[in-house]
């Protein structure tokens, strides 16, 4: 067994929180520039220029690219030969507490009914998986509510099939319009059950923008949906244009013979995720 201290996890999580808020991934930055070149709407071009410039300022000045520094979502892979000397969840939450305070990030977590702010952005949402090895891999994906609020889940009938899935995705993006800060990335989870489809949709947002889906059929479906979404004309910020989505990502899992769950998790252009291996 390899010993891993909770204090190291806390320290690393603190760093991840701050870096994720200020450093846009190079994949998204590249995709934004590429789409800027293809955008037809003059206003759309100007908006994309502002988004690109904003990301550069954020990086240079260590400033959060978006004021909504999100609810902190973690995907953690714990090697079965890693021995953590305490509570993993507590260590992560302490890292969030420190990161959001010391990084001057916004505390956006509140009680669902009283709406009282917890004031330290905890609790984080933590998905943990046991894997082979003796390492701990921590991925943070802070998620703002503008795009999260536009996400939808449907329990389709198997008879609705592929067409039903496509219609649901397109309608979800159409209804979202300018609210989730397009250009967006569309994460789609197909199959599993109610909660599994949602987690798949969120996980698939972690994939690099511009990367191909290893499954040939899913890759073709992603391209088809991306074309259809960009033909909606929603455009940057919803004011019309070619650039509605930068990418569509799909993940699937087997499901019940009576079910066809589909989850659409919409991600804004501030697609933040960072990972670290201890």
């Amino acid at each position: 067994m390899r010993k891993i201290s909770t204090s190291e996890i806390t320290f690393k999580v603190k760093e991840l929180c701050i870096r994720a808020a200020c450093e846009l991934g190079s994949d998204v930055a590249f995709a934004l520039k590429e789409m800027r070149g293809k955008e037809e709407s003059p206003l759309g071009k100007e908006i994309l220029d502002q988004i690109i410039e904003n990301a550069q300022i954020a990086l240079k000045e260590d400033a959060p690219m978006c004021q909504d520094t999100g609810i902190a979502v973690f995907f953690v892979e714990v090697g079965r030969d890693a021995a953590i000397d305490g509570s993993l969840d507590d260590a992560i939450n302490e890292g969030v507490r420190q990161g959001y305070n010391e990084g001057y990030l916004r505390k956006s977590v509140c009680h669902p009914l009283t709406r009282k702010n917890t004031s330290d952005n905890t609790p984080a949402i933590i998905h943990t998986k046991i894997v082979d090895g003796d390492k701990v891999k921590i991925t943070i994906a802070p998620k703002g509510a503008g795009s999260e609020n536009m996400s939808r889940l449907a329990m389709l009938k198997p008879s609705q099939g592929l067409q039903g899935i496509k219609d649901f995705v397109i309608n979800t993006v159409k209804e979202a319009g300018g609210n989730p800060c397009p250009p967006i990335i569309v994460g789609i989870g197909i199959g599993g059950n109610f909660e599994k489809s949602a987690i798949l949709a969120k996980e698939t947002l972690l994939r690099n923008v511009g990367s191909a889906n290893p499954d040939k059929d899913l890759n073709a479906l992603e391209k088809d949906l991306l074309d259809k979404i960009n033909n909606l004309g929603i455009g940057p910020m919803g004011f019309g244009g070619r650039t509605t989505a930068l990418a569509v990502h799909i993940k699937t899992a087997p499901c019940h013979i009576a079910s066809l769950p589909v989850a659409v998790n919409i991600q804004c252009h501030a697609a933040r995720h960072k990972e670290m291996i201890i």
Partner: peptide
């Protein structure tokens, strides 16, 4: 009116 969503560091200036 709309400001550009996500251009938060730029707008702050």
């Amino acid at each position: 009116l709309a400001a550009v969503g996500g251009a938060a560091a730029l707008i702050a200036k």
